[in-house]
Simulated scan of single mutants.
Amino acid sequence: MGDHAGHDAVRRSYDAVAEEYAARLHDELAGKPLDRALLGRLLEEREDGAAIADLGCGPGHVAAWLAGHGVLTVGIDLSAGMLSAGRRRYPEVEFRAGDLLALPAGDGEFGAAVALYSIIHLDPRDLPRAFGEARRVLRPSGLFLLSFHIGEEVRHLDEWWGHDVDIDFRFLDPSPVAGLLEEAGFTVTMRRARAPYPHEADTRRGYLLARRT
């Protein structure tokens, strides 16, 4: 998303698949025990009463899972289609239109944040800016959980579930990503990798948990 055209292509692509994405993935956490465990850690360790941000929330099913545990949750996404799908399904979540590079949130607004498979659409050159924005909106010692596909390839889709799209999925090496988090003012406290679950695409999944310093 270093260039505006790429940014718009991501938005249009997710708008195109928003309804089908929401219908297919609304209960995906039921089959992802590691994700649930890590989200549970955010719930336990965040500052009492602090809201959690879901950065690149899509149709909001992860934000809704968090909200279901009694937490004020804010979902932020680039795609108006995704936000519309989320608002209809999850009125308990506050949705905001926004960008990982310029988050629509105040300094220190959140006690924790998640970015699950959303940084994979950024130009790698934009990761420092995205991580700086995440740090800005977190309270001191706030936790930041990221997940992504592990590797070095870029997978491009022109068609997704029968819809015309124009979108890249960038696989990432966890070590450089962890280094960029450290440079942005985080301490990386956990690195995990796992094989795909049977119902997922055949990619290894990486997780980083970082604490704002």
Rank of each mutant, 00 (worst) to 15 (best):
A50T: 00
A53T: 12
G108D: 01
R46D: 03
G31E: 11
D99T: 04
G68Q: 03
G40Q: 01
E133Q: 07
L39E: 14
T73H: 07
P33Q: 05
L72F: 00
P128K: 07
A53E: 08
A53S: 12
A37R: 14
M82H: 07
L38N: 10
L116P: 10
A102V: 02
G75W: 05
D123V: 02
P33F: 05
R129H: 07
V137H: 08
I120P: 08
A51G: 07
Y117E: 05
G56K: 14
A37M: 10
L66S: 08
D107P: 14
I119F: 03
L83K: 12
A67E: 13
R46V: 06
A51Q: 01
A50M: 02
G132N: 07
A51P: 01
A50I: 03
P140S: 15
E94N: 08
R36A: 12
I76T: 12
D35P: 03
S79C: 14
R41G: 11
C57F: 02
E47D: 13
I120F: 06
L43P: 03
D77T: 12
A53H: 11
H61C: 13
D54G: 13
I76L: 13
R88M: 05
L78Y: 05
H61E: 15
G106S: 14
L100F: 04
M82D: 03
L100T: 04
G58L: 00
A80G: 15
F110K: 01
M82R: 03
P140E: 13
G58A: 00
L122E: 06
L103I: 09
V93H: 15
A115D: 08
P104S: 11
E94S: 14
A113I: 09
A105I: 05
P104V: 09
G106L: 13
R125E: 12
P104K: 11
H61Q: 15
G111A: 03
G142D: 00
A115W: 06
A37I: 00
G49M: 11
G56Y: 13
A85L: 08
V137M: 13
G81I: 15
G106E: 14
I76N: 11
T73I: 14
A85Q: 03
S141W: 01
V62C: 07
M82L: 10
V137W: 05
L122N: 06
G58N: 05
A105R: 01
R135H: 09
I76K: 06
A50E: 05
G111I: 04
L138C: 09
G108E: 04
R36D: 10
R135I: 02
V93I: 12
G75C: 06
P33K: 06
R87T: 12
D77H: 04
V62N: 08
V93A: 15
W65G: 05
A130N: 15
S79R: 08
L42D: 02
A51M: 02
P104R: 07
D123A: 14
P124N: 09
A112K: 02
P104G: 12
G132A: 10
L72P: 13
P124C: 08
